[in-house]
């Protein structure tokens, strides 16, 4: 199986001169294509920093990071922007949809920066919105959508450029338990379609949807746990897609 993420001896030190904070210490991990991984840890454990590095929003102080076979740890900001655009789909806790735009335009946004033609943009956006079951809401603005609906649109947006990995940072943090379940079922169905998903959460029951959990503490990977796949049986996943 292809290795999507390969991190070797990643360190991240903030303010190295004055008051150094060691956010990541010698983190090494591999994530293969199609894996569904949860990252857990208390606040200050370095999981946000890891997400930023993994998402190419930040570069490590030292170590090697291969994303989809490309070494990205020494890229400049423009190259990283292109990597984020093509290889990573972000899902945020607060959805981060642009309030002035309709759902459809929000989903089209990453393709604008990829230079996709108008017709294809719309077709691909509609396809992804269909996958999250929101085709009846494409002309609504975020303010006219519920939290769960916003998050579905945000997931569709993460999918449109066909990224190597989906990075979801506390995607259910702002949602009630029923809606959280709906969103997690969408992730499960994406996982079924062989999408690589990395999920940051501090809730055990959300992490339980993943097949593998990485535990962090004080900037270190302290436990790499393979879960018993009983919670993501095919029957539960198929049900999730229809909600």
């Amino acid at each position: 199986m292809i290795t999507m993420i390969k991190m070797e001896q990643i360190n991240k030190i903030y303010r190295p001169q004055s008051n150094p904070v060691h956010a990541l210490r010698d983190v090494s991990l591999h994530i293969k294509m199609g894996e569904f991984v949860a990252i857990m840890g208390p606040s200050g454990s370095g999981k946000s920093t890891l997400m930023n590095v993994m998402g190419c929003l930040d570069t490590p102080s030292s170590g090697a990071y291969h994303l989809g076979g490309v070494e990205v740890s020494s890229m400049n900001s423009d190259q990283l922007a292109t990597i984020r655009n093509r290889k990573i789909g972000f899902v945020f806790q607060n959805y981060n949809l642009l309030p002035r735009m309709t759902a459809l335009h929000n989903v089209e946004l990453p393709m604008l920066y990829a230079g996709v033609e108008k017709e294809e943009r719309k077709a691909r956006a509609l396809d992804c919105i269909g996958r999250v079951g929101m085709l009846d809401r494409i002309h609504h603005r975020p303010s006219e959508l519920s939290g769960g609906q916003c998050q579905r649109i945000a997931i569709a947006r993460a999918l449109v450029n066909n990224p190597d990995i989906i990075l979801a940072d506390e995607p259910t943090g702002n949602l009630d338990s029923v809606t959280s379940l709906e969103i997690m079922n969408i992730f499960c169905s994406l996982h079924q379609e062989n999408t690589t998903i990395v999920l940051v959460t501090h809730e055990d029951d959300i992490a339980a949807f993943a097949r593998r959990v990485l535990h962090f503490r004080d900037g270190k990977l302290i436990n790499d746990e393979i879960l018993n796949p009983h919670l993501t049986e095919p029957s539960a996943v198929e049900g999730g897609g229809d909600i």
């Binding site: 423009d78 292109t82 984020r84 655009n85 093509r86 981060n96 642009l98 990453p110 920066y113 947006r157």
Partner: peptide, 16 residues
């Protein structure tokens, strides 16, 4: 600022 951050996360380069 948040919109700018988001656009950057989605792949906008500085010159965009």
């Amino acid at each position: 600022t948040r919109e700018i951050g988001l656009r950057m996360a989605l792949g906008a380069r500085r010159r965009d």
